[in-house]
Simulated scan of single mutants.
Amino acid sequence: MPSFLHGIRSTVHQKARKEGTRCGKQYLQDGSFPTPRQMLEVPPGEVVLVHEVTDLQHERPAWRLYMVSDVMGGLYEALDWQNVFPVRDAYEVFCRESAWGALYFVVSPTGPVSAQRTALRLQAMLRFWDTLQSARYLFKTLDAVLTLEELIKASCDWAMDAWCPVEDASVHMRLEMAANHMARATQEDSIEAILRQMPRALTFARGLKHRDVVADPAFQRQRLTSLDPVSFEHVSGACTADLLEKLYEWDRQLEMQ
């Protein structure tokens, strides 16, 4: 793991922002990003923090993977927040070539969670599966130290349920099958995956005034097929959070009619 992601929280923050500035300067010069100056091996069994909610001991040295977001913040500042989205996409492609970068963008997705983009993220992470298995992880529950398989189930169960709805297979196999299905998904494939995930999204929806209407698969299909290509791409991965946002949007539209 890059050395700038290890240490006490304040130090990691400073080092990560500095790395972002360094990345920004090189990107402005030639459109590329520099490799980290120093890589550290994460000893087997060491705990990696992958979500800030579990980082309560700021003065304790730790592997703080979630603070890749600070690198990206420093990168954007170095570019004066110009053309942020293309830079974000380019930096993600760069990061997916490393084990820890690939894992970060799987468990901390940024930008549109489209079927194609999610497939690329999952496929990148799967290439480093054996390397990533040796560590342990803290995600969103305090004191719940997870194996890689448990981390992926906690963070990517929506992808497996939507794109590989089988139970009698390993996490690795389900994830691989889901990624393959996403990579070659047609619009109809995505709609079917979304419809499989809508009941899950509805369990998180609160205060819907037209729940019976927006919960109707026929209504959902009609609204999905009427989306413009860009809007559809943003939800094509069937990510629960994106679908929940759509449910609220449709509910507001019905209220205005």
Rank of each mutant, 00 (worst) to 15 (best):
S114F: 04
Q116E: 06
L195Q: 03
Q222R: 15
H58N: 11
A205E: 01
S3I: 10
A16Y: 02
I191D: 06
H6D: 00
C156M: 07
V235C: 01
G207L: 10
E52C: 01
L28V: 05
Y104G: 10
M125C: 03
S155L: 06
P86E: 05
S10V: 14
H234Y: 07
P86R: 02
T118D: 06
R200N: 14
G45E: 03
V87H: 05
E245T: 15
R196H: 04
D157G: 03
E92G: 09
A144T: 01
M177L: 11
D161H: 00
R174V: 03
A159S: 05
S231V: 10
K246P: 03
E149A: 10
H13Y: 15
K246G: 09
S155M: 06
P109S: 06
D189F: 07
A238K: 11
R96C: 09
L175I: 07
G24Q: 13
P34V: 11
P165M: 12
M256P: 01
F33Y: 08
L195W: 00
Q123R: 09
H181S: 08
S170Y: 02
L142W: 06
S108A: 11
E192G: 05
E52I: 14
L49A: 01
T147D: 11
A16H: 13
N83H: 10
P43I: 02
L202H: 01
H13I: 14
L122N: 01
A201S: 13
M256F: 09
G45P: 08
D242S: 12
D130V: 14
L247P: 01
P199M: 06
A16M: 12
W163T: 06
R17T: 14
Q187I: 05
R96Y: 13
M198F: 10
A183I: 10
A115F: 05
K25T: 15
W158D: 04
M72S: 11
Y248V: 04
D55Q: 00
L151Y: 08
L132I: 00
F204P: 04
V84S: 07
E188C: 01
Q57M: 04
S231Q: 13
S155H: 07
L75D: 14
L138C: 08
E188K: 09
L126Q: 06
A162P: 01
L148V: 05
E19F: 15
K246I: 03
Y104L: 00
F204H: 14
D89V: 05
K140Y: 00
C156S: 05
S32Q: 04
R221G: 08
A154P: 00
A238I: 08
V235R: 00
R60D: 02
H13C: 07
V171E: 12
S32H: 14
A178N: 06
A179E: 06
T35Y: 11
L120P: 07
M160H: 02
A159T: 11
A62T: 04
C164Y: 02
L138V: 08
Q222D: 14
A99M: 13
V12C: 08
Y91T: 05
C95W: 09
G24T: 11
K15A: 15
E150D: 02
E255S: 15
F204T: 07
V53G: 05
R60E: 09
V214L: 08
A124M: 10
E52M: 12
L175N: 01
Q197V: 11
L40S: 14
